[in-house]
Design a protein around this nucleic acid. Structure first.
Length: 536
RNA sequence: CGCGGCGUGGAGCAGCCCGGUCAGCUCGCCAGGCUCAUAACCUGGAGGUCGUUGGUUCAAAUCCAACCGCCGCAACCA
C-alpha cells in the first residue's frame, strides 16, 4: 500500500499482579517518544504493548481476590490501558497472553522449535519446599541456611521431569551476533555485560516447562506441562503481529526494530529470545534497548529507594496526572531521568522542573509573545503574509556574550534528532530549551518590543514574528515528548503546515507565512490561558 | 578478586571514548536591570585543588595503576 519504511517496536509486557507505577510508566514513555518521533519522520509505525498473564502469581492474586483468573486479567488489562491512555501512550495494539489467539500461536511456535529438535525431555533438580510446593533458587537455599523462608522447614533436594530448551546450542552464534552487531544491545554497557555473561558462564539449557499447573499454556506435545511464563511472554512480540495465523502481516513487521525493556531483563531478550527465534527459523530482533530504572527519593531520610510495595513508596502515574497533566508527567520523566540510565522521582524535584522549565521557560515565553501581539496588534501582525522565517535573529550576536555558542535552530534540530534516535531524550530536551527557548528570551530582552512599539511598529512586528518562529520550532521539536502541549503552542498561531502533517525537519523550515500571522488560540479575558500554571 | 555503574561549587548533572580552546549547565543564593509575561524575563556575582594517592605527558576532570566510598544486578521483584 505504501513504500513508507516500516517501524516495529515493543515494550516489555507487564505482570498484572499490581497496577502500574511510575517506573512501569517510564518504559512506556520512552517507547512512546520513539514511536511518535518515527511517525513524524514518515515511518509506518506499529507499536505493541501488552500484559503477561500466564503466571501463577497472577492466578494466585485473582484467587485471593475471589475472582476467576481470566476475569481478573481482563479487568487489569483494562486498568493498565486506562493509565496508558491517560499518559497519551500511542500504542497500536495491546496483547493479553491469556487470550486464546496468543495461546494458539504460542503453541505453534513451541511445536516448531520442538520439531526442529531444540526441545528435549530431561529432569530438573533443585531445592524444593513441600510446604510451598515449589522449587527455591540456590541463592535462597544458601541465604536461608537450607530452610524455606516461608515455612522455616528444611528444603529437600528433588528432581522432577521437565522439558528443556537447548539454549546452549546457540552459544557461538549468539556471541558472534552480539559482537558483530554493535547496535543489537543498547546502551553499550549492557552489550558488554551480555557478552561478558556468555564468555564467563556460557549458556545453560533452559527448563521451559512447569508441571501440574492449571493456569497457563499447555505444551502441545505434552499437555501434562504448561509453558514456562518467560518462554510464552517473549512470544507476544510475534504473536501480536500475526505469527502463526497471519503470515503476511507477520512478514511485514518482523524483525522488530527495537524492543524497549528494563535493564533487569536484558538477558532474556538478548540471550534467550534470539535463540528461541533462531530455533524456530526466524530472525532475531534488530535492537534491544535496556532502559534504566526510576527510584524514589525519600525526602525525609535523604535516601534513594527502589520502588517497592514493602517500602510503601509506590507512586501511581495517576497521582501525578490528575494533579497536573499527562504532559507534566511526561516532561518530568523524559527530562529528568536519562532513559538509558537511572533516574529519581521526588515531588520537590517535580515542582522545580515543572516551574523552571515548563512554566517559566516554555509557558511564559508563549504568554509574553501572545500578549504582546494581542495588546499591540489586536492579535494579528498585519502585512506579515509573505514573511519568510529566518534564523538570523538568533545567531547574530545581539550581545557580546552570544558569540561563544551561536544558537541555531537547524543545529538544534540535528542535535535533537540524533539524541532522540539514540533515546537520549533528556539531552534532546535540554538542547531544545537551551538552543532555542533561552536565546529567544534573550532576544526579546534585547529588542524590547514593548518599548520598540512606541517608536517603530514595523520593526516590532518583525521582532514578534521572529520570536513566534522560535515557538513554532520548539513546539515541533517537543512534539514527541509533550504532544498535547506542543500542539497547544503550535495551534495558537496560524502556521501554514497543519499540525498533523508536521515533520521533525519542519522545525527549521523556511516556509513563507501565507496569511498574516495571527493568534488563533482561545482567549479568556482577552488573553491566552497560561499553558503550565506555576505550582505554588 | 562475580558483573556493572557512579563519585565534578549548597542540590542535580554535562564534559571523560578522540588529553590542551574546560572548569560548563540547570536549580538555589546575593546584587542590579526590565516591566511584555505565569512574582515570570535579562545581566552580573559569590561558591569547586573535578573521591584519594601515585604514574604517563610539555600539558589530565579527561589516559594508566592502586585504594576509599556509594549504588545497582546476580535467570521469573518494572
Amino acid at each position: 500500500m505504501t513504500d513508507k519504511p516500516r517501524w516495529f517496536q515493543t515494550t516489555a509486557i507487564d505482570y498484572p499482579n499490581s497496577r502500574p507505577h511510575i517506573g512501569t510508566a517510564f518504559e512506556k514513555l520512552g517507547a512512546d517518544v520513539q514511536a511518535r518521533y518515527r511517525r513524524m519522520e514518515g515511518y509506518d509505525v506499529f507499536f505493541l504493548m501488552g500484559n503477561d498473564e500466564n503466571t501463577l502469581k497472577v492466578a494466585d492474586r485473582a484467587k485471593s481476590l475471589g475472582q476467576e483468573p481470566q476475569a481478573y486479567c481482563d479487568d487489569m488489562a483494562r486498568q493498565f490501558q486506562e493509565v496508558w491512555k491517560a499518559l497519551d501512550i500511542s500504542h497500536d495494539t495491546f496483547i493479553q497472553t491469556s487470550h486464546e489467539r496468543h495461546k494458539q500461536c504460542c503453541r505453534k511456535f513451541v511445536q516448531k522449535v520442538y520439531d526442529n529438535g531444540y526441545i528435549y525431555k530431561g529432569s530438573y533438580e533443585g531445592w524444593y519446599c513441600p510446604g510451598c510446593e515449589e522449587f527455591k533458587s540456590d541463592k535462597v537455599h544458601a541465604e536461608s541456611g537450607g530452610l524455606c523462608p516461608n515455612h522455616k522447614r528444611p528444603l529437600v533436594r528433588r528432581s522432577e521431569p521437565c522439558w528443556f530448551f537447548k539454549l546452549s546450542a546457540f552459544k557461538d552464534r549468539l556471541l558472534e551476533h552480539l559482537k558483530g552487531n554493535p547496535e543489537f544491545v543498547q546502551p553499550e554497557s549492557r552489550r558488554n555485560e551480555m557478552i561478558g555473561f556468555i564468555e564467563a558462564e556460557g549458556l545453560q539449557d533452559l527448563n521451559i516447562s512447569r508441571h501440574g499447573e492449571e493456569w497457563g499454556i499447555k505444551l502441545p506435545f505434552d499437555p501434562e506441562f504448561t509453558i514456562y511464563v518467560w518462554f510464552d511472554a517473549l512470544l507476544t512480540y510475534i504473536t501480536g503481529i500475526g505469527y502463526g495465523d497471519d503470515e503476511a502481516t507477520f512478514r511485514k513487521h518482523w524483525p522488530a526494530d527495537v524492543h524497549f525493556i528494563g535493564k533487569d531483563i536484558t538477558r532474556f531478550h538478548t540471550h534467550i529470545w534470539p535463540a528461541m527465534l533462531w530455533a524456530a527459523g526466524e530472525e532475531a530482533p534488530r535492537k534491544v534497548f535496556s532502559h534504566g530504572f526510576v527510584y524514589v527519593k525519600n525526602e525525609e531520610a535523604g535516601t534513594v529507594e527502589k520502588i517497592s510495595k514493602s517500602l510503601g513508596n509506590v507512586i501511581e502515574p495517576m497521582e501525578v496526572i490528575s494533579k497536573f497533566s499527562a504532559d507534566a508527567f511526561r516532561y518530568y520523566f523524559l527530562r529528568e531521568c536519562p532513559f538509558p540510565s537511572d533516574g529519581e522521582f521526588s515531588w520537590t524535584r517535580f515542582a522545580e522542573v515543572y516551574n523552571s522549565e515548563l512554566a517559566n521557560s516554555l509557558g511564559n515565553t508563549l504568554s509574553r509573545c501572545t500578549t504582546l501581539i494581542l495588546k499591540n496588534f489586536g492579535g494579528v501582525l498585519p502585512g506579515t503574509n509573505g514573511y519568510t522565517p529566518s534564523w538570523d535573529y538568533l545567531s547574530v550576536p545581539f550581545d557580546n556574550k552570544m558569540s561563544i555558542v551561536k544558537p541555531s535552530v537547524p543545529r538544534t534540530l540535528e542535535a535533537a534528532r540524533s539524541l532522540t534516535e539514540s533515546c537520549n531524550y533528556n539531552q534532546a530536551i535540554i538542547n531544545i530549551l537551551l538552543g532555542i527557548l533561552s536565546p529567544t528570551n534573550q532576544y526579546l530582552e534585547f529588542k524590547a518590543p514593548w518599548k520598540l512599539v512606541k517608536t517603530d511598529k514595523e520593526a516590532t512586528k518583525e521582532v514578534l514574528f521572529n520570536a513566534v518562529q522560535s515557538l513554532r520550532a520548539v513546539s515541533i521539536l517537543l512534539k514527541p515528548f509533550i504532544p498535547k502541549s506542543a500542539e497547544a503552542i503550535y495551534t495558537s498561531f496560524n502556521f501554514p503546515t497543519p499540525w498533523a502533517e508536521v515533520k521533525y525537519a519542519d522545525a527549521a523550515e523556511l516556509k513563507a507565512q501565507p496569511d498574516d500571522l495571527r493568534i488563533t488560540a482561545e482567549l479568556i479575558d482577552g488573553k491566552v490561558k497560561p499553558l503550565f500554571p506555576r505550582i505554588g
